[in-house]
Nucleic acid binder design. Sequence first.
DNA 1: TTCCAGGGGTAGA
DNA 2: TCTACCCATGGA
Length: 283
Amino acid sequence: MLIPSPQDFSFDQTVKSHGWRALLPFTWSEDAQSLEYIYAHSSGTVCIIKMSTPEGVLSVDCEIEDEEVLGAVRQMLQMDILLDDFYAYCEQHQKLASIPPLKQGRLLVSPSIFEDVVRVICTTNTTWAQTTSMVARIVDAYGSPHPTNPERKAFPTAQQIAADTLEGFSTKAKLGYRNASVYKIASDISAGILNLEELRTNDFPATDLYKRLLTLPGVGPYAASCLMIYLGRYDRVNVDSWARTLVGKELGRTVTDKEAHAFFEEYVEWKALVYHFYPWAAR
DNA sequence: TTCCAGGGGTAGA
DNA sequence: TCTACCCATGGA
């Protein structure tokens, strides 16, 4: 089915906005320019959602094509994010002028906040290669298999992880010291103590949302800032080693986290989007 | 062997 | 608030 897209939507820019397309159950084909996601439908069926833009229009191919799948696609590609204010801001700043014509500003995210929380924790203090391995082990060990391609599995629910013991999870997922954090979050969701999805629907002030995210085990300033971006809040930069490198090149010296934050201070509520899509000389 | 990667938690100042 | 230190893991 063909999906009507906002005027300022770019499938290519969204998919390539950061590394999520390389983490299961996403798979990206550079040759076909198509993104696949193994989706656990509420009916219990696991299906493969294939997204591409063969004629410049977003096309979705799935065994199940209903409102739920369409909603998941719109969610993953952030199609309902409004960028008008951000683009107006960019047009007032010469350095950011390239962003609106390129239709940048949307990031690839997961259908559930739990999934993005687990992914982000798996990016902390490790290499990208190890992040992909960690996420792959979680999906392989606990995800529901596709009925006809059982080697392809959906991202597990919190309940599927919590059904195992911490020892079992640690042995299978091998997240190092992150095991306890991810298992605790999954267990709390499964027990009904924690509801991450309410962070999406409730209209929290940004500072409250940030504080709520920081209460999650394994989630610190970097991870919380990442998750805020996925929730459409851009007033905190997820300063990581890459941010320090880029700002360092821009300033011609090595910089601390504090200096990296200071570099983006002028971009008010758009700091994180500016970091992601700033026309860095190195790119 | 040592270092470190898209940091987090804690203790102590 | 800031700094120092440890934290599993696996590749370089």
